[in-house]
Amino acid sequence: MTELAVPADQAATATETSMQQAVNAALRTLLAEDPATLVFGEDVGRLGGVFRVTDGLQAEFGDRRVFDTPLAESAIIGLAVGLAMNGWRPVPELQFDGFAYPAVDQIVNQMARMHYRTRGAAPMPITLRLPSFGGIQAPEHHGESLEALFAHVPGLKVCAPSDPADAYGLLLQSVRADDPVIYMEPKARYWNRRAVRLGEPDLPIGASRTVREGRHATLVAWGAMVHRCEQAAELAAEDGVELEVLDLRWLKPIDTDGLAASVARTGRAVVVHEAPLTAGLGAEVSALVTEHAFASLRAPVQRVTGFDVPYPAGPLEPQYLPTVDRILLAVQRTLEF
């Protein structure tokens, strides 16, 4: 695994941390800094969540700040909306991405619109933590990519961290923001450790991050696919192809300027995501590149995505998710165009 480079001045405080630990640490920071912050959802209390992301929080902050709810996703988000209207800063968890569907009415019709509907009288400082994406060969509905659905909804902001440091920083930003944020945690990356320093966010909301510089093509990704793109870039480098890897981090808003700047440098773009191809966020990225960096483009934007099929059962998942080989083939197509 490629480790993130740790700048010399931070090396002393950098420690091996998993994303699961980083999200846990961020929640601890947030609960400690603002008494209005509440963490709740299915099994997040005594158990500490099915991924142990909320481990120890109830013991530390009490069962008024960190609590279990009955199993009903729509009511969990509805509860968050009502709590926000009474001055709280809710951080609900829905256990798995596929179980966000039962809550879509509350997310789309209520949470995303309450600020608009009330002309700003009722802010919705809600961060919905959503363990997301595939890669763990989970049962049906335990692996989905809903970013395009949520990015389409006016009033929402959407982000997906790719590494522990960003998981920490993005969660601080999301929860401190007064707008509702869908915070998508890549399940497949929960347990990968990186030597990182957990600290205050170093980029504004909406900013992308160049995780690897290159001059021949830009790989655009988020969540677990960032790591896959780094692997592809590592292999390409052996053949003398220098790939830039751009971690979008925010899927709404998308960093149009950062995207355009990268493509202006490389002239080629390959967008990689787990979600199905059609009307996926790759189409949005492709359109933005065309609109904002058309003159720099030397090849059509390529999309390497899941297929237009449901997330498949375990043994087929590796054939569904974008592979390093498919990413490299797409790069080759842009180079040979």
């Binding site: 009511a75 509805g78 509860l79 009502g82 926000a84 209207m85 009474n86």
Partner: peptide, 10 residues
């Protein structure tokens, strides 16, 4: 209706 419950819990 769930908003009312959230408000009340708050």
């Amino acid at each position: 209706v769930p908003h009312a419950v959230g408000w009340a819990l708050g």
